[in-house]
Amino acid sequence: MTDQHITTPETSRMTRLPALRRYVNLLGPMIMVIVLCIIMAFAEPRFFNVPNLMIILHDAAIFMVLGTAMTLVITARGIDLSIGAVAALSAIVMAMLIKDYGVNVYLAMAASVVVGLLCGFVNSVIITRLHVPDLLATLAMDQIYRGIALVLAAGAVLARFPEPIPFIGRGRVLGGIPVSAVVGLVALAVGVVLYRSTHIGRYAAAIGGNREAALLSGINVRRHKTLQYVIMGGAAAIAGILLTGRLNAVQATVGQGLALHTIAAVVVGGTVLFGGRGTMLGTLVGVLLLSMVTNALVILRFQFFWQLVASGIVIIASIGFYSYMNRSGDDDGKDET
């Protein structure tokens, strides 16, 4: 009895395939990266110059930080549209503390992260306690945070910050590697560990994949939703610091469009918008792909507006490819239960 091994022919086929299929959602963006590289090899070989590649990394850095946290949020079937405003608000608070109140720069940076964490916490309270859907809650909070940032800054552009803010935002280390990219890659590395080897990542997948099962397993869904949004808020604040340092200036309107670009990168990378399945590696690929497309169009001297068109095409192509691969996967004999 106990030696009976249940392996039907169907089973063995199904268990071997996913090993490949696990990375299938990366295939679409990977193909696009390769196609883009081939095109650029002919159209403008300078695309591959190390300084240009560093520009791409520099551009992608903010979205690595945001994408890491957003992957977690989306995996748990959440979404955060407020991150652009959170980045702006936390950056404005930091800038005002330094400029208007003469606060130590490190203290001000810490304060901005605290503001970000708080914003994330407020989002989570509205979602988990008032039961406002994630999308609408963060859409509304985006307006509120942006409004507060605008009121605080009163139209001012705050500029010329002490180190290390410019260093973090646009400095280079080790012969040209952007500091921001180091920050972004560290964030992603932390994200990978968080995702694979901690309760935070595991329960995000459980909550997004089967909320009922998560609840029945005794997982504190509310606490983990809160954690995810707090982490997202912290990431948004770090993005705000990077943005401030990049231009060495900040105003309350900064960071518009950050949320949608981040969500696009995460989804292009293969994280499923309906929860349960996320991939940090995919997010890295998604972020890099979008930044590469933008950069390619810039060096090919296309008008800025074409970048929007191209980003849209990339998003649709990735998700279309992913849906197609998944549909063909479902057809080969798997019973839905």
Partner: peptide, 9 residues
């Protein structure tokens, strides 16, 4: 009946 599994995990 629905087994209470998280399919993605």
């Amino acid at each position: 009946q629905n087994l209470g599994l998280v399919d993605a995990l």
